[in-house]
């Protein structure tokens, strides 16, 4: 079995993003997706702190302290890019103008529920940021995450055990072991597997029933 690396997972997601989409990428592996969109394919990246047309990180001597992404790292602006304030930025998100949001998650349930902001109801200092707005507002929500936790517990589950971010929002999940559509009334449908991974091995590492494409 050869699980996808983090870079390969990001590349696998990038492969499925068509030209012309407005896309918001979360922190972590989702951020890496931008590096794998072919230069000739125009995908417009949105950052919730008020940027459309976000470009890659600048060279160290070209850093503009006024220009950061949602993770507060320095970025650049592509020609055609624009700036706007927070209320407009979330109007784009909530108003259904963003074609795709890709987030990380602790758990995704077979009905599309996502938990990605707090690990218990008594979290010492929970931090939600824009996750709930993005999950509820983007036209599509994809998740990219490891297939299991570090100690081997499944992250694809029947029902989330952590506090929810949004109900029924996820339509696709990319993990280091495979790619899954979340189909209403059916659950997780396997659309791709990492090299050497079998359906049985995938099922063994998942907390919900997996289905083969109809």
């Amino acid at each position: 079995m050869k699980p996808f690396s983090r870079d390969q997972m990001a590349a696998r997601v990038a492969q499925d993003i068509p030209e012309g989409w407005f896309v918001n990428l979360g922190i972590g592996i989702p951020t890496m997706i931008a590096n794998h969109v072919p230069a000739e394919r125009e995908v417009i990246l949105h950052s919730e702190n008020g940027i459309l047309g976000m470009g890659p990180a600048p060279a160290p001597d070209k850093v503009d302290p006024w220009l950061v992404n949602a993770g507060k790292q320095p970025v650049t602006l592509r020609p055609g890019g624009s700036y706007f304030h927070h209320a407009d930025s979330f109007a784009m998100i909530r108003g259904g103008h963003i074609d795709l949001c890709v987030l990380g998650a602790f758990e995704v349930a077979e009905n599309g529920d996502i938990a990605n902001w707090a690990t218990s109801e008594n979290d010492t200092a929970p931090a939600v940021g824009g996750a709930m707005d993005l999950a509820a507002g983007a036209k599509r929500l994809w998740v990219v995450m490891e297939h299991t936790t570090k100690d081997g517990r499944p992250k694809l589950v029947e029902k989330c055990s952590y506090p929810l971010t949004a109900l029924g929002a996820v339509s696709r999940v990319y993990t280091n072991l495979g790619v899954f559509d979340v189909v209403k009334g059916r659950g997780f449908v396997v659309v791709d597997m990492a090299p050497g991974v079998t359906f049985e091995a995938l099922q063994e590492r998942s907390g919900a029933k997996l289905h083969l494409p109809a």
């Binding site: 919730e48 010492t124 200092a125 940021g129 824009g130 709930m132 507002g137």
Partner: peptide
């Protein structure tokens, strides 16, 4: 913040970022 919050010395109201902007 984390220390004050742990000690119960500060109240926290957590608001989704877009809701925070829209409320203002």
């Amino acid at each position: 913040f984390e220390e004050l919050y742990r000690q119960g010395k500060i109240e926290l109201e957590i608001v989704p970022q877009g809701t925070l902007a829209e409320r203002m």
